[in-house]
Design a protein around this nucleic acid. Structure first.
Lengths: 342, 342
DNA sequence: TTGTACGCGTTATCAA
DNA sequence: TTGATAACGCGTACAA
């Protein structure tokens, strides 16, 4: 592999000049530039960004840490991050945590050793200790999807409390009083926790007593959704509607409900959260709380690049959620409720 | 940010010794090792993998190039690549091509400049010119999902022809004679092309005349699947069964068919290809050709690392496909066919 | 077991 | 407009 030194020799100029035709061609006379360009071709010169990074102390690389790339919402936000980064000639290194705080820790360590210029994190550590260390050590970082925390930390997210409230409110407005929730484990992220708070408050505001039996915490997987809804349906007094803390879980829940012989939405209404790309393609098409995942990824990346320029910056960007009513929710089926009680 | 020089000074040893406690601790006496470790803590030393890569000429980084992370199959294979890579302390840089050969080219260029140690590519360039250049320049590379090409190029994939044949055969065995195909554009990848060949041969073997009207090429998206199936259903003599060249397209197709008022599988049978993680959660649960995406990603990465060790290696790994019959296919509904013709 | 000294490919500074 | 050269942080012969 030839270097600028080879090129320099071949073109009979200095390495500095070669470097100039690469980085600021306008500062070198056309004749010499052409000479250099020709020399590059001749020895099949390939630019070494790593060596550049070594001297400029910038790797032009950012780390993106997410819990599970299989969740379509994260795939979508990843795409947003990627496309913006690439448009600015920045590469993104992917880190998967599988919702495990230890993995998150080791991934962050590896990424930092690789000298990434910044980090976008959908954190799995509700306490935020890791994140705090990072900010203390002045690593450019922006939280994605994570609840916007007080204090000097950049983030793009949504109001999860409000989203949970909206989802529940929709169910209440359809006449449901017995409303369950399948929530991703609170131990692993506070997003689901805040959505639950919204759910709970909405019940309260509507005079519906809170029943802790109607809350199931589960892992963030299709299976988790399926198993949880079954548990809910086997309750003595099962819910007529369920709020799932994300669409991925909701997809599992729909499957579980059907396996129990229910028709949706007649027998059971389900609301999700996320509005993942396939939500409108599900059967029944999923009623859910939209959060603009692609835009959020893109924005997070945009903010990160700004912070990398000016480390004193702190930007918190709160996106709007929106209830999207589709086919998975319907007015409560009182006839069936009666029948069940007989 | 402190360096090994700082540590060395603090511990009153040479930089070589510091380097040794990092890379081969067993070669340094315990007392000095402890001294060095303490010094590291004191100045909050952070290892610089970039500098290391610069001297060892290895970045411990590989590039993973896929067409679209939103397709759950690619998300799944990405996870496989990632988890294996991380277990070997290798980072993976993600590149999205959006099924665009130009983007693929520029992504590869950027990745190479970053000195990735190797490349895993699900190529979008059916001619394979780009890939050829890479092998000529001795870049460690393995093709993923791409058809295993003759010649000295490593790859992990499946027999797409055979998979297409199996899918079609299943439909034929259910009594279908009017079988359509919604295929991802042949211009953009040859996977779908080979599946189509299998489809075609199977028709032939069963004495079913090939009707080119029943083939629609479309883009690799949910919308592509939806629009294409509608087109098919509006044919004068519409199909009673459709083979979609991947599950993602099939998901769109199911939606499109329902929008046309059809019940699945009574009115229309659909087979997909991939068996993406959500395939069994769809309604109806998708009959499809399974390819073990996670394993394939993992294996591709495993092979790549081997090639990185020994560049003369060429390994082609063909995985088994398997027909998974679920709910989206059923025996042909002759009654309905009759009715349609009246 | 430890230290010295050089080299990796590039950019940046300063001088010409 | 161009050139000479130091510097970046680390690994590694080779020497001690």
């Amino acid at each position: 592999m030839s270097t600028i030194l080879d090129v320099a020799r071949l073109a009979q100029v200095s390495t500095a000049t070669v470097s100039r035709v690469i980085n600021s061609p306008e500062t070198v006379r056309e004749t010499t530039r052409k000479k250099v360009l020709r020399a590059m071709k001749m020895c099949n010169y390939k630019y070494n960004a790593l060596a550049r990074g070594f001297v400029t102390k910038k790797s032009n690389t950012i780390g993106l840490i997410i819990p599970n790339i299989n969740n379509p919402v994260f795939a979508e936000s990843t795409l947003g991050v990627q496309e913006y980064a690439n448009s600015k000639n920045i590469k993104v290194i992917l880190g998967n945590t599988s919702y495990d705080a230890d993995q998150e820790k080791s991934v962050i360590k590896a990424l930092r050793e690789s000298q990434v210029d910044g980090l976008i994190i959908t954190s799995t550590d509700p306490k935020g200790k890791l994140i705090k260390t990072l900010t203390e050590e002045d690593v450019p970082i922006v939280l994605l999807f994570s609840t916007v925390k007080p204090g000097p930390i950049s983030a793009v997210g949504v109001d999860n409390y409000r989203g949970g409230y909206e989802a529940t409110e929709h169910l209440v407005s359809l006449g449901h009083r017995r409303i369950g929730m399948v929530a991703g484990s609170f131990a692993v992220t506070d997003r689901s926790y805040h959505r639950w708070h919204g759910y709970r408050q909405c019940l309260k505001d509507n005079g519906i007593p809170y029943d802790s039996k109607l809350l199931i915490q589960t892992e963030y997987s299709l299976e988790g959704g399926r198993d949880s809804i079954r548990e809910l349906l086997h309750l003595e007094n099962p819910p007529s509607a369920v709020f799932c803390s994300n669409d991925y879980i909701a997809l599992g829940a729909i499957k579980g409900a059907r396996e129990e012989g229910l028709s949706l939405p007649e027998d059971l209404s389900i609301v999700g959260f996320d509005d993942m790309p396939t939500a409108s393609y599900m059967v029944p098409a999923l009623t859910t709380i939209n959060q603009p995942a692609y835009e959020m990824g893109r924005t997070a990346c945009e903010i990160l690049l700004q912070i990398m320029e000016d480390r004193t910056l702190v930007m918190q960007h709160m996106m709007e959620t929106k209830l999207v009513v589709r086919e998975s929710t319907a007015a409560v089926n009182t006839a069936r409720d009666e029948k069940d009680r007989q």
